[in-house]
Simulated assay, not measured.
Amino acid sequence: MSELRRAHAARKTRRNEGKAGDGAQRHDAIYRAISDAIIEHRLQPGARLREDALSEVFGVSRTGIRKILQRLALEHLVTLTPRRGASVSRPTAEEARDVFAARQLVECELMAQIASRVTESDIKALRDCANRERQALKAGKQSEAIKLSAAFHNQLAALAGNATLSEFIGRLCSRSSLILAVYGNTGHLGCESHDHDELIRHLENGNADRARAFMQRHLKAIEASLSIAEAPEETPDLYAIFDGSPA
């Protein structure tokens, strides 16, 4: 059997199985697949997300896809427009400024709590994430590096011990990835791995003031690296993006 036929057969099997029993676990897997594709910039801001195409790709009902898109819209990763449907959100310049202002208010103030609570194992985990980000950058895997950069900030926020703030920062980081996709300069990640290494050193030394001051400069540097520019609308090849998806 040819590769094309095998791929078609696999999609047909997923479609028949999925539409017969959409479930929460399956929807979560699809949600993560679409969310990752947005954060990693495989789905560009403004890209249309047709319900029928996504239903075909993932082998679930359009009703299930609609619920997933609504969930993504609540997190500002997807925009739902009457008669036009869903598309990957394209943050405005004002929204970009608001997101980074919010990150300044929240992430910087968490440094004192993190510095007082961080353990050796926490430091090791942070260094591991920063190292994987560095390796991705060296290998030219910018999409993976962007995802790892967001993961670093999420991991850092979790160390403060406040689940609500950690979840909020996670959403801000996801929106920041979209902002970088729209306004970021080619070849500039925004979060450089050496910045993360320096921040880790301040936290390891228990120096909350330096960690806070550094985070302020770090976030301002990311925002300063952005340049306002319009990106053309595109209709992505959903089969190519989600081929082999675990969902």
Rank of each mutant, 00 (worst) to 15 (best):
K138V: 06
T164W: 12
I123C: 08
L159W: 01
A145G: 06
K124G: 13
A160H: 02
S177V: 00
C173S: 12
R171E: 10
L165F: 03
S116K: 14
L178K: 05
R117C: 00
L110G: 01
L137A: 15
Q113R: 10
A139M: 00
F152W: 00
L137E: 15
S176Y: 07
R134P: 10
Q155R: 09
S116D: 14
S121F: 07
A139P: 01
V118P: 09
D128P: 10
S176G: 09
A163K: 13
A151P: 08
G161W: 04
L148I: 15
K147N: 11
F168N: 00
G140W: 06
L148E: 04
N162I: 15
G140E: 09
Q135A: 02
F168W: 02
N131C: 01
A112V: 14
S177R: 03
S149M: 07
R132N: 12
L156C: 02
L156I: 00
I146V: 13
L156D: 07
L156E: 01
S177G: 11
A160Y: 08
I179M: 00
G170F: 15
D128K: 14
S143W: 13
L172Q: 01
S116Y: 13
A151R: 05
S143N: 15
T164G: 05
Q113T: 13
A150D: 10
L180A: 01
I114D: 00
K147P: 09
I146T: 04
A160G: 06
A160S: 14
K141T: 05
E144T: 15
T119I: 07
Q113G: 05
N131M: 00
L180H: 03
N154F: 06
A157K: 07
A139G: 03
Q155S: 10
A112E: 09
A112Q: 11
L172A: 04
I146C: 10
S121W: 03
L159C: 10
Q135F: 11
M111G: 04
M111P: 11
H153I: 15
E167S: 14
N131Q: 04
D128Q: 13
A136L: 05
S149L: 08
C129K: 12
K141I: 05
Q135R: 12
A136D: 06
T119N: 04
L172S: 07
S121L: 12
G170W: 15
Q155Y: 04
R127N: 00
D122N: 04
A115E: 02
I114H: 03
A150W: 05
S177A: 11
T164V: 13
K138Y: 07
L172Y: 07
F168A: 07
A112P: 12
A112T: 15
L172G: 06
K138W: 02
L180E: 08
S149G: 01
L110W: 11
V118G: 11
I146G: 11
I169C: 02
S166C: 13
Q135Y: 07
N162Y: 11
S174L: 08
N162V: 14
Q113S: 02
A130R: 02
L178G: 09
L178D: 06
L165Y: 06
I169M: 14
A115N: 10
C129Y: 09
I123T: 10
E167T: 13
H153A: 08
V118C: 11
L126H: 10
A150E: 05
A136H: 12
G140Q: 03
S177F: 03
G161D: 03
R171H: 00
K138E: 06
K141R: 06
A115H: 06
A160R: 03
A157T: 12
G161H: 09
A157W: 05
